[in-house]
Each structure stands twice: as C-alpha cells, then as structure tokens.
Computed example of a mutant assay.
Amino acid sequence: MGFSKLFVALLMLQVLLAVASSTQENINAPKSDLFREYIGAEFNGVKFTDLPINPNVEFHYLLAFAIDYTTSSSSSPTDGKFNVFWDTDNLSPSQVSSIKSQHSNVKVGLSLGGDSVGGGSCYFSPSSVDSWVSNAVSSLTKIIQEYNLDGIDIDYEHFHADPDTFAECIGKLITTLKNNGVISFASIAPFDDDEVQSHYLALWKNYAHVIDYVNFQFYAYDQGTTISQFIKYFQTQSSNYKGGNILASMSTDGSGGLSPENGFFTACNRLKSQGKLGGIFVWSADDSKASGFLYEKQSQALLAAPR
C-alpha cells in the first residue's frame, strides 16, 4: 500500500512538473500578434487611415524620422536636439490622436536617425554623453508630448562615435524617457553590418532590459534570400539579441531580403509555430501605398491567426 501511494505521488509530481514547464515555455515565448510599420519618410501623401488595421493585432505606426540635425538645406548635427523630418502635413498631431481614438489597438512611435538626411548620410554625432542625453531627453519629450506618441525606435545606421558612447547615450535616453513616463516602449533597428552590429550589440549588452522589441532589418540581406536562409538569419540574430522580441521584416520597395513571392509568409508561419516570432514589421507604408497594402493585410492575418 505504501509503495502504491508513493508511485501515485511520484506520477502526480511528474504531471505537475510537465505542466509547469509547459506554462513557463508559454510565458517565455514572444507575443506574436505585433505588427509595426514605418510611415512618412518619403512624403508621398500616405495617411494613417490609408492602412488596413486588423483589430486582432497590436498595431504600431513608426513615424520616420526624428533626427538630431538642422532642418536647413545644408543639414548639420545638433548634438541631440531633435527635429521632425516626416510628412507632417499628412501625419500631424491631430491625425495621431484621431487614429488612436478610432482604434484601441493602435500605438504610434517615432524612429530616430535613419539612413540619410539632406542628401547625405545621417550620423550619430554626440559631443559628449551628458550633453547629447540632456538635449535628446528635452527635445524628444517635447515632440512626443505634442504628437501624443507612445514610444521610440532607434534606427541610426552611421556613426561618428564608438560603440560604448552610442550604448550609453541611447541606453540613458531610453531609461530616462521610460522613468519619466514619457514612453511605454522602445525598439532598436539594427542590420547585418559589422559597424552597425558593434554599436547595437554594445547597447544590447548593457541596456537590453529597457528595449522591448528588435526590429531587425532582415530586408538588408541580399535580394533573393531563400526561406532556409531567412530562418538561419533569424536564428543567428535571436542568438545575438538573446532574450529579445525579434520581429521578422520585409521591405515593400523590393530592395532585398526574403520577399513575399519567395516565401516570407511561409517562413513567418514556421517561426510562429515554433513560438519564436516576435511579430512582423514592414518598411514602409509609403512604398506600399501604390499596391493597396496587400502585404500588410497578409501580415496581420497571419499574426491574428491562432498558433
């Protein structure tokens, strides 16, 4: 009788451990219903209301871009004093408030930096950590509050500062904005380039705890990327940014990476079924306007479907 009771107790313990393990896996798996899209960089008249919004996803617009450069024809760095460089005629503060009031699942953020400004490369150029952070916190707080925004995305791609300086500037900026209640989320947008990765990995090493999403630019890989290559790239970057919510990405300007025609959604479905997909983001709404946002609809349908 004692042996029988012991056997039953051990069996129940195994069941409980299995349930706990399964529950922990579900907790650790990324929430994969997040859709994000960059908007406003190309001034082609695209509006928030042009995009289809699936009510069953979390939807983030990312205004592109806010840049710490002057707005004059010969743009120059301003040491963290940010100005708005997106299409404000069509993406104004009132239009931000309107789209958020119409859709409870919509949040709007702004992206910092980008590839170019005023016809030249956009460089991260702080004079010092303290001065840049002070200026950035002040200027971005003003913009974020004026536009009723929810978060920031970091998309610097060229650097006049070493990785540790970049890490401290951006890390302290995000930390301060979050501590001040100015933003609720922050993301980074690296891609597979040695200089770019050295800066973002330094940031990740010390400030991963304040970064909510990794908008990895998988479309910066070669055009003609295959499904198996994409999965391999995704696994590599998941290892680089260990513990992060890694989003799959595509570009609708046909520039590179794994295209929908070559299996982007097949790859995303596979990652989602494995509990690895942190969401999908698209560059960009400006490019998608001409085709009626076909791939945005497909992306959101995939994310909204049960795993």
Rank of each mutant, 00 (worst) to 15 (best):
S21I: 13
S22A: 14
T23Y: 12
T23D: 14
E25F: 15
N28C: 13
N28H: 12
A29Q: 10
A29V: 09
A29K: 09
A29I: 06
P30E: 07
P30W: 03
P30D: 08
K31S: 10
K31T: 14
S32F: 05
S32E: 03
L34E: 10
F35D: 03
F35I: 04
E37V: 13
Y38R: 00
I39V: 11
I39F: 10
I39L: 11
G40P: 02
G40E: 04
G40R: 02
G40H: 00
A41S: 10
E42G: 08
E42K: 14
F43G: 07
N44S: 08
G45N: 10
V46F: 07
V46N: 00
V46P: 00
K47F: 02
P52A: 09
P52R: 06
P55E: 11
P55H: 09
N56P: 05
V57H: 01
F59P: 05
H60I: 12
H60S: 10
L62D: 12
A64Y: 00
F65C: 05
A66Q: 03
D68V: 04
Y69C: 02
T70R: 05
T70G: 06
T70S: 13
T71A: 13
S72L: 14
S72Q: 15
S73F: 11
S73W: 09
S73K: 15
S73I: 13
S74W: 12
S76Y: 07
P77F: 11
T78E: 06
T78Q: 08
T78H: 01
D79L: 08
G80S: 07
G80W: 10
G80M: 09
G80F: 09
G80H: 09
K81M: 13
K81N: 15
F82W: 00
F82V: 11
F82C: 11
N83H: 12
N83D: 11
V84I: 15
V84W: 01
V84Y: 01
F85L: 07
F85D: 00
F85S: 04
D87P: 04
D87S: 01
D87Y: 06
T88P: 04
T88I: 15
T88E: 13
D89F: 11
L91D: 00
S92Y: 06
P93Y: 14
S94K: 12
Q95E: 11
Q95L: 13
Q95F: 12
I99S: 01
S101G: 11
Q102R: 15
Q102N: 15
H103R: 08
S104G: 14
S104K: 15
V106K: 02
V108S: 02
V108E: 04
L110I: 15
S111M: 04
S111D: 06
L112I: 08
G114M: 04
S116D: 13
S116I: 06
G118K: 01
G118T: 06
G118D: 04
G119H: 10
C122T: 06
S125M: 08
P126F: 04
S127M: 14
S131D: 09
W132F: 11
S134G: 06
V137W: 03
V137G: 00
V137F: 06
S138G: 09
L140H: 03
L140C: 05
T141F: 07
I144T: 00
I144N: 03
Q145D: 13
E146D: 13
Y147I: 07
Y147A: 05
N148M: 07
N148T: 10
D150H: 07
D150P: 00
G151Y: 02
I152P: 00
I152V: 14
D153C: 13
I154K: 01
D155L: 07
